[in-house]
């Protein structure tokens, strides 16, 4: 598969409203919900935490991107679990399902709402692959870059399932990558490889049980311009990041 260049990154986790805050390492206790400024009040009011995290990290990674035509790959292992449980609760209380909740329960809720919010009529998908969700999102991104050129956004987010399904709890979190098929001066070059000996980045405490946990230290490593072969979870795929040279 082809090489790509990292043009933008995004991250949100409780206490860490940005990648810079995350890398600095000191949590901000007031950062309990993402700003999600891309979602207008009309759409944002009823949006789940998952959708707001996706909106936040997408905006961070896409900052400065021209136009609103970038294809987007959304990825979440469990999807809109808070909304689903609200539906189940009302369904087993009085037999009803709220129409607004119903259409906010699909896996592609964030993708749909954000295409509306940003008037992006381009490609959008939402995929899922358990512990391999991050790796598979990047495979689809690289295949899109090879098919279409230009740029692609990977928007990876997860919220923790509520009671009674919250077994091995984890903190909600998300990360995003904006990748380009053409060389960008000073941008880091990356490629996908199959490898069983790649470096396993350690997720921080509170995130280990999150199926997309690996996305957080991965974008952190790219933010710090680290070179290396980084494992992408259970699937045996890895992202190889080249050293960044000063000259383009």
């Amino acid at each position: 598969m082809i090489d790509a260049w990292v043009r933008g990154l995004g991250l949100w986790a409780p206490g860490f409203p940005s990648l810079a805050a995350w890398t600095a390492g000191t949590p901000d206790a007031s950062a309990t919900a993402p700003a999600a400024a891309l979602l207008p009040a009309r759409l944002g009011r009823r949006s789940s935490l998952l959708t707001r995290i996706a909106a936040e990290v997408l905006e961070q990674a896409a900052a400065g991107a021209p136009g609103n035509t970038t294809p987007a790959v959304f990825a979440t292992a469990f999807g809109e679990t808070q909304t689903l449980c609200a539906i189940l609760d009302s369904m087993f209380t009085d037999g009803t399902v709220s129409p607004a909740r119903f259409h906010h329960s699909v896996h592609n809720t964030a993708g749909g709402l954000l295409s509306i919010a940003t008037v992006n009529r381009a490609f959008s998908t939402t995929l899922s692959a358990g512990q391999s969700t991050v790796a598979m999102a990047l495979i689809e991104c690289f295949a899109l870059l090879q098919q279409r050129g230009d740029e692609v956004l990977a928007v990876i987010a997860e919220e923790s399932p509520p009671e009674p399904f919250a077994q091995d709890g984890f903190a909600p979190a998300g990360a995003a990558l904006r990748l380009s098929a053409t060389a960008i001066p000073f941008a880091q070059r990356v490629r996908l490889r199959r490898s069983d000996s790649a470096l396993l980045l350690e997720p921080r405490a509170g995130h280990r049980n999150n199926p997309i946990a690996i996305a957080l230290p991965l974008v952190e490593a790219l933010h710090l311009r680290r070179a290396g072969l980084f494992a992408l979870g259970a699937a045996g795929w890895a992202l190889e990041a080249d050293p960044v040279t000063r000259s383009a």
Partner: peptide
């Protein structure tokens, strides 16, 4: 053991 994922985009999922 090749790439394996689920696409879930409501009613277009299995076409995509």
């Amino acid at each position: 053991s090749g790439p394996a994922f689920v696409v879930s985009t409501a009613c277009s999922s299995s076409g995509k």
